[in-house]
Amino acid sequence: MDFGVFFSTFGIIFLAELGDKTQLTAMALATKYPWKKIFVGIATAFALLNVGAVLIGQVLFSYLPLLWIKIVSGILFLFFGITTLKSAGFSEEDEEAEEKQLQTKGPIATSFVMILLAELGDKTQLVTTSLAAQHDSTAAVFAGSTLALWIVSLIGIFVGKQLTRFVSLSTIHKGAGCLFLIFGVAILYQAF
C-alpha cells in the first residue's frame, strides 16, 4: 500500500466531509438510535460507495491518458472548491426532511439508506474516483477515503454538537473549499 496516497486521500476526504450533510445526518440519528447500530449502517454504506468509486477510478486510470485524468481531476477539485465555498451557509431543513422520510426503518437500515442516498454522486465520492484514477494504488485510496469517512461520521455521532460550539460550520466549509481549490490548482499545475 502506498502510504503517501493513503494519507493524502485521508486528509482530503476528512476535511471535505467535516461539517457536511453526512456528519449532520449522523448527529441527528445519534439522538434517536444507539450509536453502534447507526455506525454499522453508515460504515457499510461508505464501504459500498467507495468500492464503486475506486473501481470506476481504476478503469479510468487503465484507459485514459494520465494528462486527461489530471485535467479533469483538477477541474473537478476547482468546481468542488467553488461550490463548497458557495454552500458555506446551508440549511439543516433539507437534512431533517430526508430523515423524516426514512424513520420508519430500523436504525441500521435507516442510516445505511440515508448515507447511501446522500453520498451517491456527492463530492467526496467523485473525489475518491478522481484520486483512484490518478494513482495506481486503489487499496490506498479506498482505505484512506473509507477511514476518513468513518472517522468523520464517528465525530458527528460523538462530538459533532460540541464542535459547532467552537467552530462554525461555515468556517469548516470555507476551509474545505479552499483546500479543494489548492488541490485543483496543484493537479492542473502537475498536468502542464
Rank of each mutant, 00 (worst) to 15 (best):
Ala118Gly: 09
Ala140Thr: 05
Ala109Gly: 13
Ala109His: 12
Phe142Gln: 04
Asp136Met: 12
Ile108Asn: 05
Thr104Gln: 08
Leu147Lys: 04
Ala109Leu: 14
Ser130Tyr: 04
Glu99Ala: 12
Glu119Asp: 14
Glu93Arg: 13
Ser137Cys: 12
Thr128Arg: 04
Leu102Trp: 09
Glu96Tyr: 14
Ala148Tyr: 11
Leu102Thr: 14
Glu98Ala: 11
Ile151Gln: 09
Glu95Ser: 13
His135Arg: 01
Gly106Cys: 11
Leu102Ala: 11
Leu131Met: 13
Phe142Asn: 07
Asp122His: 03
Gly144Met: 08
Lys105Glu: 04
Thr110Pro: 01
Leu116Val: 12
Leu126Ile: 14
Gln125Asp: 04
Gly121Asn: 06
Ala118His: 01
Gly121Pro: 07
Glu92Tyr: 12
Ala140Tyr: 08
Leu102Glu: 13
Leu147Glu: 06
Thr146Lys: 01
Leu102Asp: 12
His135Leu: 02
Leu149Arg: 00
Ala109Ile: 15
Thr124Ala: 08
Gln134Phe: 01
Gln103Cys: 03
Ala132Tyr: 05
Gln103His: 02
Ile151Ala: 10
Ala109Thr: 15
Lys100Ala: 13
Gln134His: 04
Met114Ser: 11
Ala140Pro: 01
Glu92Lys: 09
Lys123Tyr: 09
Met114Asn: 01
Gly121Arg: 10
Thr104His: 11
Thr124Cys: 00
Leu126Thr: 00
Leu120Ile: 09
Phe112Ala: 00
Ser91Leu: 00
Gln125Trp: 06
Glu95Gly: 09
Phe142Lys: 02
Pro107Cys: 02
Asp94Pro: 00
Lys123Gln: 09
Leu117Pro: 02
Ile115Leu: 14
Gln103Trp: 02
Gln103Pro: 00
Val113Ile: 14
Phe112Asp: 03
Pro107Ser: 06
Glu98Lys: 11
Asp122Phe: 05
Lys100Gln: 10
Val127Ala: 12
Thr146Ala: 13
Ala148Leu: 07
Glu92Leu: 10
Ile115Gln: 09
Asp122Gly: 05
Thr110Asp: 04
Thr128Glu: 08
Thr129Gly: 07
Ile108Pro: 02
